[in-house]
Amino acid sequence: MKCDNYVKLTVPALSRNESYARAAVGAFVSQLDPTLDELGSVKAAVSEAVTNCVVHAYAESDTVGIINITARIKGEEVYIKITDKGCGIEDIKKAMEPLFTTKPELERSGLGFAVMESCCDKVKVSSMVGKGTTVTLTFRFDKKVLK
């Protein structure tokens, strides 16, 4: 019997949770028996998306915001949704341009979305200014479907 599966995580938008988030999602995805390359790609993409929440989403906020992460295995695909309720992105197309960064003083390279796109089969970004941002990462692990 085909069995889809999911996990939901909620963490404060703290830098020290970046490693936890990618490790937790990596552990969940490991049930598909990914190659080391595939697992590395999942962890790198999750790390980028979560770091964006930590660095940008709540930068102007007085309180520590929340990051919601849902990882879902559905057939041959893995969907990872990373959501914040922060400042939102005014111009998504611009934000996704390689080397574009609003925080060069923090040595941000502006390559977060480029890394996500190189790691995933699909990256979808939806955002509303003042409401928050959701990044959905899609991976296809062919023929590694849970039975």
């Binding site: 962890k43 790198a44 980028e48 770091t51 040595e107 941000r108 390279s109 390559l111």
Partner: peptide, 13 residues
């Protein structure tokens, strides 16, 4: 054992 674009920022800096 792991690096993301923050490592790129470190190198470019």
């Amino acid at each position: 054992t792991f690096m993301d674009s923050s490592g790129i920022g470190l190198i470019l800096g």
